[in-house]
Design a binder for these strands. Structure first.
Lengths: 154, 154
DNA sequence: TCGTGCCTTCAGTGCCGACCGAAGTGTCGG
DNA sequence: CCGACACTTCGGTCGGCACTGAAGGCACGA
């Protein structure tokens, strides 16, 4: 007996969420992202997400707020008593990656500050310089690469 | 009255450790790294680290084991009753960065798997494809950049 | 103005990881 | 064989974060 597509999709969502959980995004937040990337139709209310992902309304609310704030999810309100609809904002995924790269490159500011404290003692600075050189290289290369990213992602 | 270099260095070590704490490295582990990058002489025993960083012997032991295992710190044993000496292994710092980049690129495997589950429904796959395209681009560009890294870091 | 549904807020709970320090292990010199 | 020292291991504690669910607030229709 074969496994249905939706079942395999839930498993995929779980793996997806697990990956981002390792990067500090709450499990439920990751599930929301994964779900909104593949659900049909593309928009869901908070109540639907709560039921579909088996999470409390509070958790859904908190995580949606976080994701909307990060720009990854868009909230669409409707007049009347109708619940707001949420959908993925995949255009903003670049921001997520950019933050990652920025965090990496920003170490250079630390190593530079350390190097300044070491000025006048090149012998002692040797170890830090090796690390500083690495981040300096990263800080010059990565932004250049980033600028060449395909137009479709802007 | 001016602040001594060693005092400013402790403050720097603390900032250094704080940064890597955000990336999941325990505070004490980060302090050890920062300290071993700038201390003079370059080698320290576990007992010295414990005193200098005001951390318990247990924490120092656990974190040193972790760092030695990661290749970032080298343990040098000495015969007799003499304590082992630890020093930074700055050559291996590239590995740390590579793991970071790998983690970023590895998301592509997830998005690819998701795309496969979506095959036959291009309409529904549109959102995921935007994200998949991004990671596919990253997965082709970043390794190429990495290969061009300066010889001094190999 | 009242009722109704949706959402957010918040106090409470549980869990996990970092840290401590004492006990244990191993190794060496005497 | 014993004492001494360095290091590791491990039970216990603490703090912080994710999550829950109920209570509260808000917006609308009647």
């Amino acid at each position: 007996m074969s496994v249905g597509r939706e079942t395999r999709l839930s498993a995929w969502i779980e793996r997806f969420a697990a990956h981002f959980a390792e990067e500090g995004i709450p499990l439920i937040g990751g599930r929301i992202l994964g779900y909104l990337l593949v659900c049909q139709p593309t928009e869901r209310t908070a109540a639907e997400l709560s039921q579909e992902l088996e999470a409390s309304s509070g958790s859904i609310s908190t995580n949606l707020k976080f994701l909307v704030n990060a720009g990854l999810v868009t909230k669409r309100t409707r007049r009347g008593r109708q619940a707001a609809q949420y959908r993925i904002n995949e255009k903003r995924w670049v921001d997520l990656i950019q933050r990652k790269l920025d965090a990496l490159v920003s170490v250079r500011e630390l190593t530079e500050a350390g190097m300044r404290l070491m000025s006048g003692d090149p012998e002692r600075a040797m170890r830090l310089r090796a690390v500083d050189d690495l981040y300096t290289w990263l800080a010059t290369e990565l932004p250049a690469v980033w600028e060449r990213r395909p137009a479709s992602s802007r």
